[in-house]
Each structure stands twice: as structure tokens, then as C-alpha cells.
Design a protein around this nucleic acid. Structure first.
Lengths: 220, 220
DNA sequence: ATAACTTGCAACACTGATGACGCAAGTAGC
DNA sequence: GCTACTTGCGTCATCAGTGTTGCAAGTTAT
């Protein structure tokens, strides 16, 4: 991980929204102003540890997360007032990377097949390693929901273009195709073994387009 | 649901195993002997309510499950000593139906394509409505794990036969194909709308075999 | 009708997780 | 080196969920 900083800090400023304040007293101490270098390192360590830990067990304890991050539990609470704030921050962080990965593939302008391939490879690279955070698509955070909806629409636009370009059959159901596409990516991201993003992307795109059947059997 | 009784009672007898006994005192009162009619109705109501409730929120409370079943929380505990016992019972119940649905399609003897279609339709019929229970494949209960492993192998045997019969391409990776197949079924089961099992099965099989691409484009 | 069973209710104990503090020691940055 | 910040640690309060028990009222089956 290179610079989680910028993201992490945005998280903090988001976090201070303090939607309702179910717990007793105060919210996160998170002010918008810059953190000292060591503090930023800690925040990053916590977010990464949270991903690893929650990835294995979504019900993991703040204690376990703290331990994985190599910090005291109280320190986690200092940075993220509540568990919810932490999870939301994680989700937002990963979601923005996700959106950036999609945008980078220029899905609205590149030739459909190229865009499809590049998008797949980019997204795959994010998904392996940020599996838990990406599973929080149905986050309470409206920003996360918004971004996911946006990506969803981008994806469907791409499929429409692909259909018009003759890459997809004229009769395909775009929403269904997108769901299948998501499912394939998810499945590919699970493979712990051969994790070369390009090979996986090829597998996904190939499966999506050709399926597993023989070209022209006299079927059914 | 017609007769959940036989299943539910088997659950109970499984449940009494009392693996370690983490809580204080005793385990489930579940003896192997028959329940009175009203008690059986209650057990069934609880299992079905658990499915519905946990389907929406896997972290749902025993209280919420009880409420959904129209029963007091203490009654739930009377029938299922711990939350774990309840979830295991649910998983085992659904898993057996699942296995039965697969077996009914004669996946080892029917012509591959027929078997594939029938299996899909049967499994789909189980999965919609028992989504949560079926997601417990990685249950602590060894019986559940065993059945799932068995079905998995049956599925792969079917795919091998399909490949040899020319239904699947000679170069397909069977484990990957099975994963994709599972994912497609899962995806199809999500569709709350057009829930005709046959239509969904057609969609799944069609997608698996043909994919979404045009037959023979000059691709890549 | 009666004996056995089942349920709801109220109450209680226990546990694990969460969140908040204050303080002492250590570190970053000027 | 001085100041401000950050962290670990110990501690405490609170809470939600779980599991248990006793009893009165209702139901089932014979």
C-alpha cells in the first residue's frame, strides 16, 4: 500500500458527521485537520488490519482488529469512535479505489472489448485484498451507495455499447449480464492460487462471452 | 411448506450431540422422542421464521426470530438450546433437501444436458426460500459439510460426462465451471421477480453454455 | 376428565463487546 | 530542547444478547 493517507483523512472528515450518536457521550475526536505522521501511519495500519481481520471473520472484535494492527484497542477507538465508523471508513476507502479502477479503464470511450478487459483486470486487482470492504456495497453510507450505483450504470452502458458493437448477442438481457459479470469477478477473486490479474481477467471475460459449452451443438 | 416435521425431528436428535457445552448448565432438552402436534408446529414455525429473519439479517437476534415465529423467546430456547444449535439444525434441514433435489435429477445417469437442466431447476426451487440456510455450507456440522462435498463431486462428475458428450468444450476447467455454475444459480436465485423455476433454469443453463457473446466474432 | 405436555411471562445471572477517561511515557517536528 | 501530539495501559460504566428457571394458564390426547 502506497498512500492510504489522503483517503484515510477524507474518511475522518466524513466520519465526524455524527449521524445520530447512539452511544453515550461524544463522537469521534476526528477533526478535519492534518494528523501527525505517526498518527497517519496508525490510521492506515488500522484500516488494513481491519480489512484482513474482517475478511477472515466479519464478526471479528475491535480487540482482534487492534491486535492485528499492532495497537491498543483504545487507540482504535480514538481514531474511529465506533465500529460502524470504522467499517464505513473502510467501505468508503475501498469503494473509491474501486470507482477509480473502473474509471481508469475508460469504459465509456474505449472500444467495448478493450474496455471490458481492462475494467475486469483493474477491478480484480482491487477486489483481491479488499474483499471485505467491497462486500459492504450495501453500506449505510449514502456516498458508498451512490458510487456503487454509478459504477453499476457505467457497467450497463458498457454492455449496451458492446451489444451494439456486436460483441454481445443482440438479445442479451443487460441487467442479467451485469449480474453474471459481477458474479464471475467475485468468483475469480476468490481463487487464492493463480492470482495473476491478467490471467484472471481473461478467464472472466472468456467465460462471460463464450460460456462453457461447445460452439454450435444441436442443443435441446 | 408441507411437512417439515420429519426433518425437524431428525435435527433435534442430531442437536443433542452437545459437542462441548460452552454455556453454563444443560444442553437442549431435545430428546429423540416424538413431540406433541402443537410442539412440532412450533418447531417448524421457528425454523421457517429463522430462515426468513436470518435471510434478511444474518446477525438477527433470537428475539427477532422468536417474534417472526410468533413465539416467546424462551420457547425458542426450549427447542434449540443455543443459537448455534438452531442455525445448524436449519442448515442440516436445508442441506438434506438440497441433496435430495440433486439426487432426484439423476445427475449420474440421465443424459448430461437433461441432467443439467433438471438439476438446475430442482436446486433453484430449493434455493429460493432457503437462501440463508444454504449459505451455511461451511457449517461446523460435519454432516452438512459431507453432504455438500458429495454434491460437489456429483456436480463435477456430471460436468465431466457433459464434456465427454461434447456438451462442454474439451478444454474447460471443471472446477472453475462448477464454481461458475454455482454462482449463476446463486445469482438466479436472487431474482425476486420472475421466479418461475423453469425459466430461471433455462436462463442459467443457457448462460453457462453459451455465455453472453456473439457466436464467432473475431475476438481479441 | 384428567394427566401430561406446552407456552407465555417475568425475572435473573452471566458474558463479551463497546466506549470513555486519565495518566505516564514516548515521539514528532519546530 | 521544548512543546504538542500520540500511544499504551489500566480502569470503569454500560449494554445487548444469551441462556436459565419457576409458575400459571392453556392445550392435547387418551
Amino acid at each position: 500500500m502506497t498512500s492510504a493517507y489522503a483517503f484515510a483523512m477524507e474518511m475522518q472528515s466524513q466520519a465526524q458527521a455524527d449521524t445520530s450518536g447512539k452511544p453515550h457521550g461524544k463522537a469521534a475526536p476526528a477533526g478535519g485537520r492534518p494528523l501527525r505522521a505517526d498518527a497517519e501511519r496508525t490510521v492506515t495500519a488500522i484500516l488494513e488490519a481491519a480489512e484482513r481481520t474482517l475478511g477472515r471473520d466479519p464478526a471479528a472484535t475491535m480487540e482482534q482488529i487492534a491486535e492485528a494492527a499492532g495497537v491498543a484497542r483504545t487507540t482504535v477507538h480514538r481514531r474511529f469512535a465506533t465500529r460502524e465508523v470504522l467499517v464505513d471508513a473502510l467501505a468508503l476507502w475501498a469503494t473509491r479505489r474501486f470507482a477509480a479502477a473502473v474509471a481508469e479503464a475508460r469504459p465509456d470511450t474505449a472500444p467495448p472489448l478493450v474496455a471490458l478487459y481492462r475494467t475486469t483486470a483493474n477491478v480484480l486487482a482491487i477486489k483481491v485484498g479488499w474483499g471485505f470492504a467491497m462486500s459492504q456495497a450495501s453500506s449505510a453510507d449514502p456516498e458508498v451507495a451512490r458510487i456503487h450505483a454509478e459504477v453499476r450504470e457505467t457497467c450497463e452502458r458498457l454492455f449496451v455499447r458492446a451489444r451494439e458493437a456486436g460483441v454481445l448477442r443482440p438479445d442479451v438481457d443487460v441487467p442479467w449480464t451485469r449480474q453474471v459479470y459481477y458474479a464471475l469477478i467475485h468468483q475469480a477473486a476468490q481463487r487464492r492460487d493463480d492470482s495473476d490479474p491478467d490471467a484472471l481477467a481473461t478467464l472472466v471475460v472468456d467465460t462471460l462471452l463464450r460460456g462453457a459449452g461447445t460452439p454450435h451443438p444441436d442443443r435441446l
